[in-house]
Structures are given as structure tokens and as C-alpha cells.
Design a protein around this nucleic acid. Structure first.
Length: 108
DNA sequence: CAGGTGACCTTAA
DNA sequence: GTTAAGGCCACCT
């Protein structure tokens, strides 16, 4: 799970990524659910920009009437990310990682 | 062993 | 633009 946490920590301020993309980057294609699990069990969630991870449809994956949902939306808006009707335009905010640079920073 | 459950994804309507 | 179904996998009953 360290790998997941590390990659999530690399998402820049004001950008977002998806569970599936993070899984791919971690070399675990098809394991989006594992990413959500990794976030849920992060030892120090406050140290991670967990709120920059959304689903592939550009939506926050918590129930829209829940507290976590409002919290995530607030964090994103604080970073300048526009959330319209619970949706985020991936075309504008999706993180485009430079794979080469990312690999060089991997602590494993 | 047989279901059920998720902070999910892709595809096909 | 939507939604629904099937796929997915680690865990828990």
C-alpha cells in the first residue's frame, strides 16, 4: 500500500486523478478498489491529498449527502478546482504525470 | 465453500 | 449528457 500512498502524494495541488489511474501507475491495473481501500486504511490520512482522488467519471465517490462528500468538495474548491453539480471536468483538472520523472522519485 | 460488499471501471445503450 | 450490466478483487459472513 505504500506505493499507492506515495503516488497519491505526488498529485499536484489543484489537480485530480482517479482510483483506476493510481492503480495503473502503481503497476496494479484493474485494481481501483484496492486504491480506495488503501486510502481508507492510510496510517496518517491528514498527510495525504486523498481528496484529489475521484472516480473515472469525474465525480466524488462518496454519497452526495454524506459528510465526507462535502469535505472532499470543500478541499477541492479550496484549491481552485471547480465542482459543478458534483462533477469535475477531467479535461481541465486531471493530473498528467510525467512517468519518467515519477519513476525516478519512487522510493522503491 | 457460497454469497455479499465496496471512496471502482469499461462498455454498451 | 445518462444509466445498467458485467467485470473486478480483497475481505468478511
Amino acid at each position: 500500500m505504500e506505493k499507492i500512498w506515495f503516488i497519491v502524494s505526488m498529485i499536484p495541488h489543484g489537480r485530480v486523478s482517479s482510483y483506476g489511474k493510481i492503480a495503473d501507475l502503481a503497476g496494479l491495473p484493474g485494481r481501483a478498489r484496492y486504491v480506495s481501500k488503501a486510502l481508507k486504511s492510510a496510517p496518517d490520512i491528514m498527510a495525504l491529498p486523498w481528496y484529489r482522488v475521484i472516480n473515472s467519471q469525474g465525480r466524488i465517490s462518496f454519497d452526495e449527502h454524506s459528510q465526507p462528500y462535502r469535505e472532499q468538495m470543500e478541499h477541492l474548491r479550496n484549491e481552485g478546482v471547480v465542482v459543478n453539480r458534483g462533477k469535475i471536468r477531467l479535461q481541465e483538472y486531471e493530473w498528467q504525470p510525467d512517468i519518467a520523472t515519477l519513476v525516478l522519485q519512487l522510493p522503491f
